[in-house]
Amino acid sequence: KELVLVLYDYQEKSPREVTVKKGDILTLLNSTNKDWWKVEVDDRQGFIPAAYLKKL
């Protein structure tokens, strides 16, 4: 499984997104879309802008 580091706080703006904090380490589920990556946060799955994440 691939992990990503959150570079900036992000507040979800729709039900398909998730809220994260800078410094969080998340499981990356899908990065095929270059703009929005799907991650897992506390048993929730959702999207975050790829620019907010860095692969570890």
Rank of each mutant, 00 (worst) to 15 (best):
Q45N: 09
V39W: 01
E2M: 11
L29A: 04
D24Q: 15
L5Y: 10
L53V: 15
T27L: 14
V18Y: 03
D24W: 14
V4E: 00
N30S: 15
V39R: 00
K21I: 07
L26F: 04
V18R: 02
K55F: 08
P49L: 05
G23T: 01
Q11G: 08
K21F: 09
V18N: 02
Y52C: 13
K54T: 12
S14I: 04
V4K: 00
Y8T: 08
K54Y: 11
F47S: 03
V4N: 00
W37P: 01
L5Q: 08
L3E: 06
D9T: 05
Q11A: 12
D35K: 11
L53F: 02
S14K: 08
D35M: 13
I48P: 01
E12P: 10
D24Y: 07
T19S: 15
G23P: 00
L26W: 06
K1I: 13
W37Y: 05
K54M: 15
K22L: 05
W37N: 01
E17C: 06
A50K: 08
V18H: 03
L56P: 02
L53S: 04
W37E: 01
K1L: 15
K1Y: 11
L5V: 12
D24H: 08
W36F: 07
V4M: 03
V18C: 07
K13S: 11
V39Y: 01
E40H: 08
L53T: 06
V41F: 11
E40P: 00
Y8D: 10
L3A: 05
G46F: 14
L26C: 10
Y8G: 08
K55Y: 09
L26Q: 01
I48D: 01
N30Q: 11
E2A: 11
I25W: 04
L5A: 05
L29F: 03
D24M: 15
Y10H: 04
K54Q: 15
I25Y: 04
T27Y: 12
K1D: 11
V41L: 10
A51Y: 14
Q45H: 10
N30T: 08
P15I: 10
K22E: 07
Q45K: 14
L56R: 03
R44E: 05
I25S: 02
K34Y: 08
Y8F: 12
Y52P: 01
K13G: 08
K13M: 13
T19C: 05
L53I: 06
W36T: 03
L7E: 03
G23W: 05
R16W: 15
S14Q: 08
T27P: 15
L26T: 02
K55H: 09
K21N: 09
Y8M: 14
L56Y: 08
L28I: 05
V20I: 05
V39I: 09
K54N: 07
K34G: 10
D42L: 14
R44D: 04
Y10N: 01
V6T: 04
T32F: 10
K13N: 10
I25R: 05
G46I: 12
D43Y: 13
V41R: 11
K34C: 11
D42H: 12
K13R: 14
S14N: 12
A50H: 04
K21E: 06
G46D: 02
Y10K: 00
T27N: 10
D43G: 15
V18W: 06
R44T: 07
A51G: 13
E17Y: 04
N33T: 07
W37L: 02
D43F: 12
F47M: 09
E2S: 12
T27D: 06
V4G: 04
R16M: 13
I25E: 03
K21Y: 13
A50M: 05
S14T: 13
L3K: 13
T32M: 13
R44M: 07
K21R: 14
S31W: 09
K55M: 10
R16L: 13
P49M: 03
V39F: 01
D24T: 12
K34T: 12
D43L: 11
Y10I: 01
K22F: 06
T32E: 15
L7N: 02
E17P: 06
T27Q: 12
K21H: 12
K21M: 08
